[in-house]
Amino acid sequence: MAVRPLLEVRGVDKSFGAVQVLRDVAMNVFPGEVTALVGDNGAGKSTLVKCISGIYPIDAGQVVFDGRPVTVSSPKDAAALGIEVVYQDLALCDNLDIVSNMFLGREKRSGIALDEATMEQMAHRTLASLSVRSVSLRQPAASLSGGERQTIAIAKAVLWNSRVVILDEPTAALGVAQTAQVLELVRRLADNGLGVVLISHNMNDVFAVSDRITALYLGRTAAQVRTSEVTHSQVVELITVGYTGSIGLLPDPGSYEGMGGRS
């Protein structure tokens, strides 16, 4: 496809003290697509997300957004670019209703004071664009199910014209029916034109909604592949040993340079 990535991570290194957690990591995120970010526990997925969203500074490499190299040194910088992260621990205020939760902490950031009617209208429009019909705007967050909380957290992320939404294990704590709804919502975000990154351990979730898969292995990019080009067992191999057939980080340590990050 001739479409340019919306977000490009190039050659990113990140160490905590003496421990190098990310090494020469690459990932491309395209508009209108879901990129699944997969890897074993400790592979570096969450760290990569925190580097992209300005929580951790990177030691080397580049983040390119919409074709421009950018420096993201705080979540505020990320939000200004239109990069939003939905974390697993869903920070909603139980005593506030849905509208207030969707605007919580955002009014100030945008610098404009919004009246209740405008906020309600914006919340309504956002939920409608995501075909969310199961909740009412003035319902307190305490009354929401886990799946609905996840839905509101996602809606909050797209409220301000975000362009890239990153979801860290959004279905991990959910039951079957709610997982299905959240997966459909993830797909809809991309179908509405956003670039979406989905972190998941569940291969059915990954194959159900992704267009591309980026596999991390021990802090390196093992491969970036199209979901239409690989099988389940190949992705499992990329995750567990870093390569499959001729794709990925070849076992011979001398030959893996140049293989990682090939798309």
């Binding site: 059915n204 979730d205 194959f207 159900a208 239409s228 099988t231």
Partner: peptide
Amino acid sequence: YLAAAAHVRSRLN
């Protein structure tokens, strides 16, 4: 489909 997509996709691919 949602619960078995890895297998659906693999066979399709």
